[in-house]
Design a protein around this nucleic acid. Structure first.
Lengths: 217, 217
DNA sequence: TCATGATTTGACCAACCGGTCAAAGTCACG
DNA sequence: CGTGACTTTGACCGGTTGGTCAAATCATGA
């Protein structure tokens, strides 16, 4: 009848209690970001992550119950960061400017956080085994909301008619391409940093696509 | 001094000698395509591939010396298929039509061969460990050639001015997105097949982007 | 039919990998 | 300074995986 007591992991999987827990969890997630982004989920090993974090392997498993748990928490944190630029879109702003600014925000995210982008890409490529529910839930809701706004913008004639959902896909595809396929892009680009060119290219691309015809009544 | 003889693999890694070799190599590559595309290189196992191919594991390794060798040969075969649409571009044709047709060919490839696309995406994501030389060689050469033609088209005023290389990146990004991120696309799209919409969307997108201004002198 | 090379496989192995455990060390606070 | 909870780790384990090997089977043509 003594307490089953002292499960190997800190009291709860939820919020960190002590200073040490906070520090080490951050250390682990940082290391996991590096290793998962470089080798993918399957290619990454707990030894690599623990070594990168400066902790022992059993110590990792003291803070997280399994490799999968680390991956899951990392991914959920990422999703928020990744959706932020779309949430910041001002539904009452000037249509063309709002979209062009969104494109630039997303491109900067791809440039500044390529590891996050690659982990996300890897997850989707594998069929989104851990975040499919979030895609079908939060993400779809956010896209539906944004699409409705874009549709309204088109109706008022401030934007050329395009399929709003495919427009959003296009923005994602074009911006993430520079992060996820970085090696290919640089190989073809002769090793030159593609981002300055991309910034200007995407700006003119979307401006031409979305500027309504002048001749309309 | 007897011959070192009877290395476990068929005479050469080059061309198949017998009917059986041809059949089994194709069987293996087909199975590898299925398994690698579903689980990635690291996540795929020889057992899965051999089972999918209907052969025993040692039999696999009779035809290919290692897992990596299978992957390498598969990847090289894919690259050709993948570059074909760009090679078919008629440098003497009508600029806008040629590019729009190229977009459609690439999109159909993404729809009809998503497994090939995903294997390719996975390879690039991991830093192109096996085909980087091909990217820097054949692919870059092909892109440079195409970019030169596009530049000429722009100079003759048949195409709006855009950066040719980034234009090619855009085509790749937009078309492959529908294959590689299929799950995400469908999740957001409410499970609806996105390809019909994509076909029309990309057509209007590139037409608007590339049609030269009418008012030009 | 028989010999020879091509093909196939069951048994096996060493390395790796995710995860466990008991014991030892450390921290904070009364 | 003691004590109970928190943290850390060396040693270990069972399952998986890429790959090997010797022996068996098959195909072919002289």
């Amino acid at each position: 009848m003594t307490k089953r007591s002292a499960r190997p992991h800190p009291r709860d999987a939820t919020k960190p209690r002590t200073r040490i827990q906070k520090r080490n969890r951050e250390l682990i997630l940082g290391a996991a970001l590096e290793v998962f982004s470089k080798h993918g989920y399957r290619g990454a090993t707990l030894d690599q992550i623990s070594s990168e974090a400066g902790l022992s392997k059993p110590n990792l498993l003291y803070y997280y119950p399994s490799k999968e748990a680390i991956h899951r928490e990392l991914l959920h944190g990422l999703l928020d960061t990744w959706l932020d630029p779309l949430k910041e879109l001002d539904h009452g702003g000037e249509p063309l400017d709002e979209i062009l600014e969104y494109v630039q925000r997303k491109l900067q995210l791809a440039r500044d956080y390529p590891r996050e982008s690659r982990i996300f890409a890897n997850e989707i490529l594998q069929g989104a085994p851990t975040i499919l529910p979030d895609l079908e839930g939060d993400l779809k809701a956010l896209v539906d909301r944004t699409a409705a706004t874009i549709r309204r913008w088109i109706e008022t004639g401030k934007l050329a008619p395009v399929d709003p959902v495919h427009l959003i896909f296009s923005i994602w595809a074009l911006t993430q391409h520079y992060a996820d396929f970085d090696i290919q892009v640089r190989a073809v680009n002769g090793g030159v940093d593609p981002f300055p060119g991309a910034e200007q290219h995407l700006n003119t691309l979307f401006r031409r696509m979305l500027t309504p015809d002048q001749g309309a009544s």
